[in-house]
Nucleic acid binder design. Structure first.
Lengths: 301, 301
DNA sequence: TGACATGCATAAGGGATGCCTATGCGCCGC
DNA sequence: GCGGCGCATAGGCATCCCTTATGCATGTCA
């Protein structure tokens, strides 16, 4: 069965005759005879009864007609839907992030997106580990991702800036205080479970500083780690953005500063909407440090 | 856009790769590349992102996929629906009649049909005049018709028998009494409106007998004409089957007998179900007179 | 009643389409 | 670095579809 056959059938029915439909379709009448004949042969039923006062539907044709219309409608729907996506008027953007970013960076951008493109939907999925994030992106579940720089990556990768990692404990300090590496090496630590992306950050940080943290507790959530740390169980490392304002005095810079790069990366062929979201992210004033503003000797994790 | 392209697209998505889908579809991989490439070009959007770990949907593909499935589903629905009609397992029969028949002959056949083919629907439409009936049949609104013999008719016509026309008035007579033509010529008549099919019957009857009926009342309904006649306004002619049993003594045969042939006729290519209904009608014991049982010199209207 | 007009079916030719084989390209793994 | 894998591309060829030309049936008009 071919779509053209259905279109011809509908045209003949609407025109009431083969030759009339042929004129309307800018084809010759034999084409219609052939195509509709082929359609009827394939279906095993005569659809149109040819008479002198035009064609009439047979019972099979009566049943077939609305279904053929459904098919044509569905085809047009599909074309329209794709067109809307192409033109960016409609569609959804699947944004993938890691949890530690989802709570800090994304909300303001999502709010602004919704007010700018109210007819589109931003779908956020957050993963607990960058590994899961990248795997989901590679398998096509997302259009755009915000997280640590993936390596390697086929599509475009744009840096958003660096977020600072801070160490938090029960004691309070004046703003701008830096923690001594030797102190961190000796401290009790609230660490993360293996599946949590922050565990990798702590590992790399400890590697940079040359010690192995002594774990007194493990959690899968940044907020829980902070809670434990402020309660005095040990110290922990979190993104600065994840520290609530009321605990900001508990957080200290790590040595000269410890930073993690955040990038936005997308599939090889980002959609119109995904590009717009990326543009919005890169132009937004994010609470991140630009690469040129990184302090001398900053640690990168 | 072609249906095959949609099928290929769905197959590639289901198989997760071009070559896998090619094997499943028993075509070569280049065919899929070409067809899907053509589809994407026509839609103006890439639907599938080709990667090393198989294909993934682009945003446009995500939107397009369910619509393509809708199209394919609709196509299969249409094929199934036609098949059911062809096999007679489903469908409807549009039965067209004139009113005077609808009340007499059809009800028992309809009841029997419903009990024999409960999954099918008998749709009855009755027309006030044979002219309208034939016009409706010619325009394809019905599959099968029961009424006076149409002339000319392209499709099959099968005689059901003859129904007798009787004259009814206020007086009562013994069963089998015949009315005298001269009496009818002198009588006051309850006639039918022009649009009523029975008016033609009366005209032809009067023509046969050589008089012009003097109208004292006109109605569009057979039941009303009978009521008027029994009330003594005048005499009228109705099918014998239309005379209620309680008034049967008021009805008299007209001369040697006046009969109207009832036939069942259908479109040139009757459907399976229409043929079954026709068979049912012809085998049913109908309250009609066979041609060979018509009395000598019977009038045919 | 015979010539014409109308409407669909059929036949044959030409052009476009789609599938095939063969090959190229990029990537991965050994 | 070499073969394997997967998709894209090119060229040959069969098929399909549209076209023109014609046939057939019917209805119309002179």
């Amino acid at each position: 069965m071919q779509l053209r056959q259905l279109e011809y059938f509908l045209a003949v029915w609407e025109a009431g005759s083969f030759s009339g439909a042929a004129a309307r379709l800018y084809v010759t009448q034999p084409s219609l005879s052939q195509q509709i004949g082929a359609l009827e042969k394939e279906l095993g039923a005569i659809l149109l009864e040819r008479g002198r006062q035009g064609v009439t539907l047979t019972p099979a044709g009566r049943v077939f007609l609305p279904r053929a219309q459904d098919v044509i409608r569905a085809v047009q729907d599909s074309q329209d839907a794709v067109r809307e996506v192409v033109e960016g008027r409609h569609g959804d953007v699947h944004v993938l992030t890691v949890r530690s970013v989802a709570s800090g960076i994304l909300p303001p951008s999502a709010a602004r997106w919704h007010s700018t493109y109210p007819s589109t939907v931003l779908r956020l999925h957050d993963y607990s580990h960058r590994r899961d994030l990248e795997e989901a992106m590679r398998s096509g579940q997302g259009d755009i991702a915000v997280g640590p720089r993936p390596d390697p990556w086929e599509g475009p990768v744009i840096s958003l800036g660096y977020e600072e990692m801070v160490v938090t404990g029960s004691a309070e300090y004046p703003a701008g205080t830096a923690a001594d590496p030797a102190e961190l090496a000796a401290a009790d630590w609230v660490l993360y479970e293996q599946e949590q992306g922050m565990s990798e950050v702590v590992d790399r940080l400890a590697g940079h500083l040359g010690f192995t943290p002594r774990a007194v507790a493990r959690t899968g959530q940044v907020s829980a780690a902070l809670l434990f740390a402020v309660e005095g169980i040990g110290v922990t490392v979190t993104p600065e953005n994840a520290v609530p304002l009321r605990w900001s005095r508990h957080a200290r810079r790590i040595g000269p500063g410890c930073f993690r790069e955040l990038v936005v990366f997308s599939r090889k062929l980002p959609s119109q909407l995904a590009e717009r979201y990326r543009d919005m992210l890169t132009t937004l004033e994010l609470p991140l440090t630009a690469e040129r503003d990184l302090p001398e000797g900053a640690l990168r994790v």
